[in-house]
Write a protein that binds this DNA or RNA. Structure first.
Lengths: 167, 167
DNA sequence: GGATTTGTTCAAGTTTTTTTGAACAGAGGG
DNA sequence: CCCTCTGTTCAAAAAAACTTGAACAAATCC
């Protein structure tokens, strides 16, 4: 007979911890981030003490590789910071829990780069559209490209407001 | 000898159309939507006349299945509407190009459901936390769960504002 | 400076997601 | 009515994304 607990649940996590981890796994999927990121952040969020990479590997039953890469991404997003925990060779991590910081990091890392690259692509598109010989067609292209520009302008306007509201 | 054009580029798309389609393929990926959705919306966006399912299949070189499912998703999101085009058994589609509508559909279909399911999960979490016997632990859980609630409250506050700004 | 521990990297394996295509349902025409 | 055409469905194939684990680098200890 198998273990009474499904293999996706670690023996090392209490029921509430498991629930919170699942909550975040769902949460980060909406943001297009992988499961392991949700697991790691979720466990840190519901742990009263900072955790080391090895803690995460053991409690979540994930590989060292996943834990390492997940932590890197979370650090880049500003969602996790290194805790001051002397007396140990290991690095310990704790979650950033201010919404402002989390949203800010996500915008900086995941949204802005796309808005920026979009801007340069639009410039190229405008050049291509100008090559069209048919005036009617050219007018149509220009109309649509202007629409695209107005969308992106709005996007760039909204982000700071969003961050301010969440501050 | 092979066709001189890469197989990812259709003979039927002009250079600018191909550029715009690629632009939207990138765009929808940020939103966690599949490539075909970006292709379909992108082509509709840069076409001056409504297109039928078969037009999409031929010009984008995708399967009927993809086109059908992609159109369904786009209709659900309110990103595409059926055009009035008599004199033909086929249905023709045109893109919704008002940012407000696009954002509204995305929020309604992709964001709200998660906020709603999160709300009920949080309720469950609160119940679980109450079962803890250690008062210190219980206090910690409650603190974090409150934090979670405040995040979601902010989320629900922000969405209408966002929609208003983009209107 | 060698041994040990911590953490990173990345090719290969696994899982998840997306796309395909063939079978099918339904509408319309003749 | 039967035949043709449009569009949907869904199981299987393909592609994309994620995870693993073993090799490696770097830091620390003694």
């Amino acid at each position: 007979m198998d273990s009474p607990v499904s293999k996706t649940q670690s023996e090392n996590l209490s029921f509430i911890q498991q629930q919170v981890v699942d909550f975040f796994v769902d949460g980060v999927r909406v943001l297009g981030l992988p499961r392991s990121i949700g697991e790691i952040y979720g466990l840190l969020f519901i742990s009263s003490e900072p955790l080391s990479l090895d803690d995460l590997v053991q409690k979540l039953d994930i590989s060292k590789g996943s834990a390492s890469q997940g932590l890197r991404t979370l650090k880049t997003l500003g969602a996790v910071r290194e805790a001051e925990k002397i007396n140990d060779r290991r690095t310990y991590y704790e979650p950033a829990i201010e919404l402002k910081r989390l949203v800010g990091g996500f915008i900086r890392e995941q949204i802005r780069p796309h808005l920026d690259s979009g801007k340069s692509k639009l410039q190229q598109l405008n050049e291509t559209a100008a090559l069209s010989n048919d005036p009617t067609e050219r007018a149509f292209f220009n109309e649509r490209l202007e629409r695209l520009e107005s969308w992106m302008k709005r996007g760039r306007q909204v982000l700071p407001i969003l961050q301010k509201i969440l501050g």
